[in-house]
């Protein structure tokens, strides 16, 4: 790789990184931490509400119920697994990281939303045909990964544009010359 090429790549990566950081910094939580009590109704093959939005630091209390058969509730990143029995006020809660512990019978599951981003809760108890695709979403704001991602993608657009301008017409003309000779060979 030539020096000028290395420089170009370096500059491009810098622009994208800067844009990623700006993007990740932009999202804000919508308020101070609070206690949220949410009822989540499971049925074949979705949860209601489909998306739970909370802020970082919120204490989330979930009342899990099933409207038809036995369902599960496996919340990624929060080490939480519950079995939801229909027509029962209790759920059996366990920690997937500690399989040796006996499940607890609780009326509500509670956790502190300390990790930001989007996490899915999935059914962990075979509940019918679409069971493997039964899931819902917990979004803990500020969602920095989403902001950073959008920032990075926009940064790629900007970096490409800038680099093309800086490179000037040299390669552009070469391209025309080449394309004149063989209009199809654009590797």
């Amino acid at each position: 790789m030539s020096r000028s090429e290395l420089l170009r790549w370096g500059a491009g990566v810098l622009v994208v990184l800067a844009s990623t950081v700006i993007g990740a910094w932009m999202p804000r939580a919508s308020g101070p931490p609070q206690v949220r009590r949410i009822e989540v109704k499971a049925r074949q093959y979705a949860y209601d509400p489909p998306t739970i939005e909370v802020n970082q630091g919120d204490t989330v209390r979930l009342k899990l119920t099933s409207q038809d058969v036995v369902h599960g509730f496996y919340l990624e990143a929060y080490d939480l697994q519950a079995t939801i029995m229909p027509q029962s006020p209790y759920v059996e809660v366990s920690r997937p990281s500690r399989p040796e512990e006996k499940p607890e019978k609780l009326e509500e599951v509670e956790f502190v939303a300390d990790r930001t981003g989007k996490f899915r809760y999935r059914c962990s108890h075979t509940c019918g045909t679409m069971h493997p695709f039964m899931s819902g979403e917990l979004v803990v704001k500020p969602n920095r990964l989403l902001g950073g991602g959008v920032g990075a993608f926009a940064g790629m657009l900007i970096a490409g544009c800038l680099l093309a301008c800086v490179l000037g017409n040299g390669s552009g003309e070469a391209a025309v010359a080449n394309s004149g000779r063989s209009p199809h060979a654009i590797p």
Binding site: S66, D68, V69, V70, M85, P86, Q87
Partner: peptide, 8 residues
């Protein structure tokens, strides 16, 4: 009997 609710 079935003693776990399994559907309608």
């Amino acid at each position: 009997q079935c003693s776990t609710r399994c559907g309608p």
